[in-house]
Design a protein around this nucleic acid. Structure first.
Length: 886
DNA sequence: GTCCCGACTTGAGATGACCTAA
DNA sequence: TTAGGTCATCTCAAGTCGGGAC
C-alpha cells in the first residue's frame, strides 16, 4: 500500500471552539482511484474568523515544520482552492466514472443472473417457474416492512401449497404427455429418500429418452452433480440434526428460536433447481448473498443459486443463524403497529440534588462579595463552569443566561445584580475546576467504589423487560439542569435548562407490569400504557419545548430490527436506482417548474448525499439542507478552473457544519438552476415549489418506503462496498488492511460531510510519531550494517557466528515490520484528523458489508467494531457470510 | 396545502476509562 | 508506576419523517 503524504494539502488551525480543518485534498490524493465528492466544510463564518487568525499563527509554524503541508481554506486562498478543485475534478470524474462502471457491472451481473435464472427455469420443472411468477407478482411485498402474524403466514402457506399443488398437477399432466410415463410422482411425500429415489428415477428416465450424445453427456453430468449434491445435502442434514438436538438440549432464553420449517413437498423441484439446502424455509428476509436458493414465506421471493458452488457446513450454519435472527424478529412482529405487549422498567434516574458550594468560595458583584440564594447560586455555577468555554464570549449566550438567571434570583438579588460584566465568577470557576481535578485524581479504591456504585445503578435502572427479553436502556438518566448549548448561532444558547422533576415525567409501560415508583414525596405526571411507541419515559424540556425520551439501547431487538430494515430499504433502492435516475433526468425537461425543481433537488440528494432540508423556525440556528437551500447558498459558473457548468455550494448544514463543494453538473441541471434563480434575491428559496414532504411523497411513489434519507444510507453503503473492493489487497498485512478499511470509511465520511475538530494536541502527537519513525529508520540502518558484518563473520565462522547472523537478520525483519506499522499509523492518523468516522460507521454503513469484509480477508471483527458497536451490530455479525454484497 | 407535533435517527462534543511507553 | 494519549462511552442537540388538525 502506497502511503500518500506528500503534496497533501493541510488545513491548519484549530481552536477550542471546535473549528475544523479539512483534509479532503489529502483523501483524494491518497485515493486517487474513485473517491467520492469532496467537500470543504467548516463551521460558521464567525468561527472562520477565529480560525483565520489561528491559522495565520499556525501557518508559519506549519511551514517550518513541514514544507509538505499546505494551507487549505476555501475563503483564504483562491490558489489553494484552484489546486484542490483540480484534484477534486479528476477524482470526482473518476469516481463518477467508477460508479457508472460499477452500475454497468451490476447491470451485467443482473443480466447474467437473469439469464442463469432463465436457463434454470427452462431446465427445471414448471413448478419453479410458477414460483418465479409468484415472486414477480409479489415483488412489491418484498418489503419486510409489511409484517405478518403467524396465523396469516400459515394461511398464506396454505394458499401457496394449494397453488403449488395445482401447478404440480398440471406439471404431472405435462410430464405424462412428454414421457408417456404412467408413474405418478407423489409430490407430497415427506420422505426425502423417496424424493431422491424419484429424482434418480427421473434422471434415469431422461437418460433413456435421450438419443443424442450431447444430451447424454449433459444428463450424465447433471446426474453426477445431483448425486454429488445429494451427498452433500445428506451430510448437511446430519450436521444440522446434530446441531438442532444440541440446541434443544441447551435452550437459552436469549437465543433466537429456530423456527425454520421443513418443506418436503417442494423438494423435488428444489433439488431439480440444484439447490443444496432446500429443506429450509425462510420466513422473511432478503438474503441475496446466499448462494443457496431460499424461498421467503411472506414474500415468496426466491434467492437465486450461485451455480456450481458448494458451501461448507460452517458457512451454511452461519446462514442458518441469519435465518434464525430474521425469523425471530419476524415471528415476534405485530401487525397492528404495536411494538410490544409487555414492558416493565424501574423509571428514570434523576440528577442528584444541588449541593451548595462551600462558604469560602465567593461570588463578587462589582468587586463586592455577595452570598447568593441557593437557586441563584446553582445557576451561577452553571455559568462559572463554562467560563473558559467559547460560549461565554458570545453575546447571545451571555444575554440569554443573564435573563434566565435573573428569573431565579430573589428580589434583592435582582435589584443588585443588573450587569453581567460586573459579575465575578472566578472563584466559583476555580472551585469547580479543582473539584474536577480532585475527581480525576481519586485513588484506585475510590474510583473502584464509584464504579461499583454506578454499576449498581445501571443494574437496577439500566434494564427493562420487554416481551420476555431483558433489554438495555439507552439513556435512563434524566438530563441534569444546565445552560442550553445550542450549536452554531443558536438564538437560545445560554438559556436555563431547568431541573426535571417526577411531575414532568410521563411513564410508559404495560398495564400488567409493576409501575415504577416516583421518588418519595413526588408523583409522575402521567402513567401511560402505549404499546405503539418504544419510549419508556418522556418529558418536555423548557428551552425549545421539545419532548425528550428515554429509549432502548441500540443493541436492543427493537432498535436492531429497525436498523436492519433501514439497510434493507437502502438495498432495495440499489435495485431501483437506475430507473429512478432515468426518471429524474427526464424530469429535468418537464414543462412544470415544480417537477423540474423536484428532479434537480433529487439529483443533488443522490449525487452529493445532501440531507433533505426541512424548514426551520426563526428561533433555531439558520441551517439548511437540500430543499431549504437559498439562492445565496449556491454560485453558478459556466467555466471554473477548466471545468464547465460548475455549481459552488456554500452553506451551513446540520449542527452548523459548513458545507463547501464545487461540483461540475450536467448542462441541463445548470440551465435549470439559472432558471430557478431568475428574479430572486439571495434570501429567496432556490426550490420555491418544493419541500421535504412533497419530495418524500414523490419518492414513496417511486419505491415504497423511499425517502430522501435513504439515498444517504444507500450512497454511503454503496461507496463503502466499492471502496473496499478497490482498496483491499488480500496480501496486505493486517494493519494495511485496516488502513484500507479506514480509507473506505473515510471516503464515506467525506461524502456525508462528517467532520470533527482537530483533536487537541494532534500536531504534537504527529511530531512525536515522526520522531519515532525517524528513530526506527535509523535503527534499521544500524541493523542492516550489523547484518552485513555478521554475514561476513558467518561465512567462514563457527556455528555461533551463524546463529548471531540469523538473530540479526530476524531483528532487522522485526524492525522493518515495526516501521511499516508506524508509517501506516501516521498516515491513518493524519488523514483522520478532521474526519469523524464514527457517525457513518454507526448510522450509514450496512454493517454486513464490514462483517463480510472481515470474514473474507481474515480481519478480526474487533479491529473494526468495538464492543458497543459489536453489540449494536450483533444481527449483522450473525447474518453476513464472507460473500455478502450490499 | 400548511402547520404543528410526536417519535424517532443522526450527530458532534465532552468525559472518563484504559492502554502504552518510558 | 505513571504520564500522556487514545478511544469508548455518554450526553444531548439537531435533524428526518409521518400523521393529524385545520
Amino acid at each position: 500500500m502506497e502511503l500518500e503524504n506528500s503534496d497533501n494539502a493541510e488545513n491548519s488551525t484549530s481552536s477550542k471552539s471546535g473549528n475544523r480543518e479539512n483534509s479532503e485534498g489529502k483523501q483524494l490524493n491518497g485515493l486517487s482511484n474513485g473517491y467520492p465528492e469532496k467537500h470543504k466544510s467548516h463551521k460558521s463564518d464567525h468561527k472562520d474568523k477565529h480560525r483565520d487568525k489561528d491559522r495565520d499563527k499556525h501557518r508559519s509554524k506549519d511551514h517550518k515544520s513541514s514544507s509538505k503541508d499546505k494551507e487549505k481554506h476555501s475563503s483564504s486562498s483562491s490558489k489553494d482552492k484552484d489546486r484542490h478543485s483540480s484534484h477534486k475534478s479528476s477524482s470526482k470524474d473518476k469516481e463518477r466514472g467508477d460508479r457508472e462502471k460499477d452500475r454497468d457491472k451490476d447491470k451485467e451481473r443482473d443480466k447474467e443472473k437473469h439469464r442463469d435464472k432463465h436457463r434454470d427455469e427452462k431446465k427445471s420443472s414448471s413448478s419453479s417457474s410458477s414460483k418465479d411468477k409468484e415472486h414477480k407478482s409479489s415483488s412489491k411485498d418484498k418489503e419486510h416492512k409489511s409484517s405478518s402474524s403467524k396465523d396469516k403466514d400459515r394461511e398464506r402457506d396454505k394458499d401457496k401449497e394449494e397453488r403449488r399443488e395445482k401447478h404440480s398437477e398440471k406439471e404431472r399432466d405435462k410430464d405424462k404427455d412428454r414421457h408417456g410415463s404412467s408413474k405418478d410422482k407423489d409430490r407430497h411425500s415427506s420422505s426425502k429418500d423417496k424424493h431422491r429415489d424419484k429424482e434418480r428415477d427421473r434422471d434415469k428416465e431422461k437418460h433413456h429418452s435421450s438419443s443424442k450424445d450431447k444430451e447424454k453427456k449433459e444428463k450424465r453430468s447433471e446426474k453426477e452433480n445431483s448425486e454429488k449434491k445429494l451427498r452433500i445435502e445428506m451430510k448437511l442434514e446430519t450436521e444440522y440434526a446434530r446441531e438442532d438436538s444440541a440446541r434443544e438440549d441447551s435452550v437459552d432464553e436469549d437465543e433466537p428460536k429456530l423456527v425454520i420449517k421443513e418443506e418436503a413437498q417442494s423438494q423435488n423441484d428444489e433439488i431439480h433447481n440444484r439447490n443444496i439446502c432446500t429443506k429450509w424455509k425462510v420466513l422473511v428476509g432478503t438474503c441475496n448473498t446466499l448462494s443457496i436458493k431460499f424461498r421467503l414465506k411472506s414474500t415468496n421471493i426466491a434467492i437465486s443459486t450461485h451455480e456450481d458452488k458448494f458451501y461448507s457446513v460452517q458457512d451454511l450454519n452461519s446462514y442458518k443463524k441469519e435465518l434464525c435472527s430474521v425469523v425471530r424478529w419476524e415471528e415476534e412482529k405485530k401487525d397492528d403497529g404495536t411494538k410490544w405487549t409487555f414492558l416493565e422498567h424501574k423509571g428514570p434516574v434523576f440528577a442528584p440534588p444541588y449541593e451548595r458550594i462551600p462558604s469560602n468560595v465567593k461570588f463578587y458583584y462589582d468587586g463586592k462579595e455577595m452570598r447568593l440564594s441557593e437557586e441563584a447560586e446553582e445557576v451561577a455555577g452553571f455559568y462559572a463552569r463554562m467560563l473558559d468555554h467559547d460560549y461565554t464570549s458570545k453575546n447571545i449566550f451571555n444575554n440569554n443566561f443573564f435573563t434566565d438567571w435573573r428569573k431565579v434570583m430573589t428580589k434583592q438579588e435582582q435589584a443588585t445584580i443588573v450587569d453581567l460584566s460586573k459579575c465575578n465568577f472566578k472563584s466559583m470557576h476555580a472551585y469547580f475546576m479543582d473539584m474536577a481535578e480532585k475527581n480525576r485524581n481519586k485513588t484506585k479504591e475510590e474510583k473502584q467504589a464509584q464504579k461499583e456504585k454506578n454499576e449498581a445503578i445501571q443494574k437496577e435502572y439500566g434494564f427493562c423487560t420487554i416481551d420476555g427479553h431483558k433489554e438495555k436502556i439507552g439513556n435512563f438518566k434524566i438530563e441534569p439542569p444546565g445552560l442550553f448549548r445550542g450549536r452554531g448561532e443558536h438564538p437560545k444558547m445560554g438559556m436555563l435548562k431547568r431541573r426535571v422533576q417526577a411531575e414532568d415525567i410521563i411513564i410508559n409501560c404495560s398495564k400488567a407490569s409493576k409501575i415504577p415508583e416516583a421518588p418519595p414525596g413526588h408523583k409522575w405526571k402521567e402513567v401511560r400504557h402505549d404499546p405503539s411507541v418504544t419510549w419508556l419515559a418522556s418529558w418536555t424540556e423548557n428551552v425549545q419545548n421539545q419532548v425528550k425520551y428515554i429509549m432502548l439501547n441500540p443493541s436492543s431487538k427493537l432498535k436492531g430490527e429497525k436498523d436492519w430494515q433501514k439497510y434493507e430499504t437502502a438495498r432495495r433502492l440499489h435495485q431501483s436506482i437506475d430507473k429512478i435516475r432515468r426518471e429524474y433526468k427526464d424530469d429535468w425537461k418537464s414543462k412544470e417548474m415544480r417537477i423540474r425543481q423536484r428532479a434537480v433537488a433529487l439529483y443533488f440528494i443522490d449525487k452529493l448525499a445532501l440531507r433533505a432540508g426541512n424548514e426551520k423556525d426563526e428561533d433555531q440556528a439558520d441551517t439548511v439542507g437540500c430543499c431549504s437551500l437559498r439562492v445565496e447558498h449556491i454560485e453558478l459558473h459556466e467555466q471554473k478552473d477548466g471545468r464547465e457548468y460548475v455549481v459552488v455550494f456554500d452553506f451551513l448544514g446540520k449542527d452548523s457544519i459548513r458545507y463547501y463543494n464545487e461540483v461540475p453538473v450536467e448542462k441541463r441541471v445548470f440551465k435549470n438552476l439559472q432558471l430557478f434563480m431568475e428574479n430572486k434575491n439571495g434570501g429567496d428559496d432556490l426550490f420555491d415549489r418544493l419541500n421535504t414532504s412533497i419530495l418524500n411523497k414523490h419518492l414513496n411513489e417511486l419505491m415504497e418506503g423511499l425517502t430522501a434519507k435513504v439515498f444517504r444510507t444507500y450512497n454511503a453503503s454503496f461507496t463503502l462496498q466499492q471502496q473496499l473492493d478497490q482498496l483491499t489487497n488480500p496480501d496486505d498485512s493486517l494493519s494495511e488492511k485496516i488502513l484500507s478499511y479506514n480509507r473506505a470509511n473515510r471516503a464515506v465520511a467525506i461524502l456525508c460531510n462528517h467532520q470533527r475538530a482537530v483533536p487537541k494536541g494532534h500536531q504534537k502527537s504527529m511530531e512525536k510519531l515522526k520522531e519515532k519513525i525517524d528513530a526506527k529508520r535509523q535503527a534499521i540502518k544500524d541493523a542492516e550494517r550489523q547484518v552485513k558484518d555478521a554475514q561476513k563473520d558467518a561465512k567462514h565462522g563457527s556455528v555461533k557466528e551463524k546463529t548471531i547472523y540469523e538473530k540479526k537478520k530476524k531483528l532487522l525483519q522485526r524492525l522493518k515490520e515495526q516501521l511499516v506499522k508506524l508509517e501506516v499509523q501516521e498516515t491513518d492518523r493524519d488523514e483522520n484528523k478532521t474526519i469523524a468516522l464514527g457517525t457513518s460507521k454507526l448510522n450509514y454503513l450496512d454493517p454486513r458489508i464490514s462483517v463480510a469484509w472481515c470474514k473474507k480477508y481474515g480481519v478480526p471483527i474487533e479491529k473494526i467494531y468495538n464492543k458497543t458497536q459489536r453489540d449494536k451490530f450483533r444481527w449483522a455479525i450473525d447474518m453476513a457470510g464472507p460473500d455478502y454484497r450490499f
